[in-house]
Design a protein around this nucleic acid. Structure first.
Lengths: 205, 205
DNA sequence: GCGGGCTTGCACAGTTCTGTGCATCGAGCG
DNA sequence: CGCTCGATGCACAGAACTGTGCAAGCCCGC
């Protein structure tokens, strides 16, 4: 087991990718999945995984970094190009929803702060952006809530996860879920239901 | 280590209670807390814990049963004595909030379905009651949501947890948290913010 | 103060996981 | 065709945890 310094798109690289891919879904199902379980699921032997990642922590860290980056990008992209804060909120929710499937692992891992204690910090930028958006909306009266902006941001985050899980449990059709999540989050922020519905419908054409 | 058949209020019983009490908070912090950690936190030796509970599963099970019972009772009590569905919803949220601190363990444990897979079933009655309440409200037009009742119930559940965690993280004052949670959940169910605020204020005098 | 139940300390077997070393095999690239 | 990088299988040390056994100590109620 030596350096693995071959260029991209080699067999090794494909394997590495597949391990990461499989590990994501495997850790989602069980945050305590062993290296053995992950390896088997990737159609590989445990020893091979250690050829790509020196230890479990590095593997999980790589995973989290990728997911966070994707979510942050989606979140930012979704809310640009509008002055309307409610619209920005709806846009970011819809955009994040697109990468939601991969985002779920963050919930599972975040729950077990011991495994990756740095996860809260890694997600901090996204959370900060959400909070700022909500704070401005609350100030301008676009949003109404008894909760301070940071708390509301936190609640919003959990609502997104909740809708994802509802889909997982068959309580909700996947096609409508993103829009439903956006509408529900807007109404939770005090936006009238009719307005929220119209706004989301317009954005998700 | 023999039978421990002494009547209540003995030393042994006090110890048992303290172990359960401490285990609750300890498992909340880390769902994977070892028997050693729990014992130490309870000011007791690991061997003593095994004197009260034959194994880890029994200990956790006892814990979960107690928490579920308390929550179910609070949920039921909070929504009785009114025909107004919105008021019933607010009442149950406020009531559940009172036992919220102990309820949080259920989240942490529910996340790790491996440990106690029966937890979803144990909570089923509460969830069913919530769902039914929401379903009737949606039918009557008291509530408005793009989500079907079961999904909305799930989202509500998570919102409650989210507010609890917000308090934990210092994002929200504990005194106002219960009322804020109730208002936010009502608005998420499509109840106008002004109405929701008035309703909760009236109930929590 | 005496006894019996409770607690402690220690030891031990069994399990499961991690990370590593080493020899061997396979497959593609030059 | 042969060389090399990667994959495999196996073996091993070390750590952590669970559950149990046993002997000795402690403390409260009778």
């Amino acid at each position: 087991m030596t350096a693995m310094t071959t260029g991209p798109s080699s067999r090794a690289d494909a394997n590495r990718r597949r391990i990461l891919d499989v590990a994501l879904t495997e850790l989602l199902r069980d945050p305590d999945a062993s290296m053995e379980q992950i390896a088997r699921a990737a159609g590989v032997v445990r020893r091979t995984v250690y050829g790509h990642f020196p230890n479990r922590e590095t593997l999980v860290g790589t995973l989290v970094d990728g997911a966070v980056a994707a979510v942050a990008a989606a979140h930012a992209a979704g809310r640009e190009g509008t002055e309307d804060l409610a619209q920005a909120l709806a846009g970011s929710v819809l955009a994040v929803w697109e990468v939601a499937d991969r985002y779920r692992i963050l919930v599972a891992l975040a729950q077990r702060s011991v495994t990756v204690q740095g996860i809260q910090e890694r997600l901090a930028p996204v959370r900060a952006a959400s909070t700022e958006l909500l704070r401005r909306g609350l100030n301008e009266g676009v949003f109404v809530s008894p909760l301070p902006a940071p708390a509301l941001a936190h609640v919003h985050e959990q609502m997104l996860f909740a809708v994802m899980e509802a889909v997982n449990n068959g309580l909700l059709a996947a096609e409508e879920a993103g829009r439903s999540a956006a509408v529900t989050m807007l109404t939770a922020a005090g936006v009238p239901a009719s307005l929220a519905t119209a706004l989301v419908a317009k954005l998700s054409v």
